[in-house]
Design a protein around this nucleic acid. Structure first.
Lengths: 144, 144
DNA sequence: TTTAATTCGGATAATTTTATCCTATTTTAT
DNA sequence: ATAAAATAGGATAAAATTATCCGAATTAAA
């Protein structure tokens, strides 16, 4: 469904949010260890998230990645997916037809639209705070 | 969402179904021209669909690809997706965690489950006959 | 039985995605 | 200032996906 990069990006963002609650910055090394992803590749993804303004980085000693504590609840899964995979997954045609739209729909259009809308709604209505709090409560897990 | 191979596979299957209604076999060349896909790559995908028993091929002169006319309505989109992309897309964890399940869910699990189920239901309840008939009626389109 | 029209399948290439490595740059503490 | 601890970013490699090419095998018709 999502690319590996996007899966890592979402997992990393949740872990960063979790730490930012406590005012703690985290390194790519820590992140990759926690979410079980390749470190250097994860670092690239973090850079992309910084460029897209989803997370922040602080360079130099005592630096690391963080998310503005007051904005954690404003970051939606769709922001992360947009930054890494783009919006084609929840906006494009299921059969890959560029010209597919309401006026000239592909054979899957009407039925796929329902799924796509469900995905879009889900991504746009789920924020990092909710996801991180579930983990904190011990209701959900980032690994193993 | 789906791989290119899977998109081509679905589009090709619909076109074959459309022709099998009329008892006409079609070649990879014809198929690729109609669904606007690379011919040799499409041929490989057709072979995979034959191996998975989704479509049939008849070798030699006057051969081509076809679908048993009486079975067109029994072939579900899920059969095609399964054959080409596997079932991970509508059965696996949205964050790519192998260990994610109801007992130990990932943070996205509950919300993603709804989307995944919607996709699963859609793929399993949509058959080639319905899709081909919509095209025949001029309500939907395979290209342009 | 030969020929022509086909699918099948192996080899290879191109592109994209995933992953690694190394150096430069930035920043804080000493 | 200097050293140490970080992120940034370029170069490269590995793996997966997408795509092409060509000869072998199969089949029906002439």
């Amino acid at each position: 469904m999502f690319s590996k990069a996007c899966e890592y990006g979402i997992r990393a963002s949740i872990f960063i949010a979790l730490n930012s609650f406590e005012g703690r910055r985290v390194s790519p090394k820590e992140i990759a260890a926690e979410i079980d992803s390749p470190q250097a590749f994860t670092a690239k993804i973090l850079q992309a998230l910084v460029r897209h303004n989803v997370i922040q980085s602080v360079k130099g000693a005592y630096g690391g990645f963080e998310i503005d504590k007051n904005r954690i609840k404003d970051i939606k899964l769709s922001d992360i997916v947009d930054a890494i995979d783009g919006d084609n997954i929840y906006k494009g045609c299921g059969l890959g037809l560029k010209a597919c739209d309401e006026d000239r729909p592909c054979p899957m259009h009407d039925k796929f639209k329902v799924v796509r809308e469900e995905l879009k709604t889900m991504l746009e209505s789920t924020n990092l705070e909710d996801l991180a709090l579930d983990i904190k409560e011990g209701d959900t897990f980032l690994r193993r």
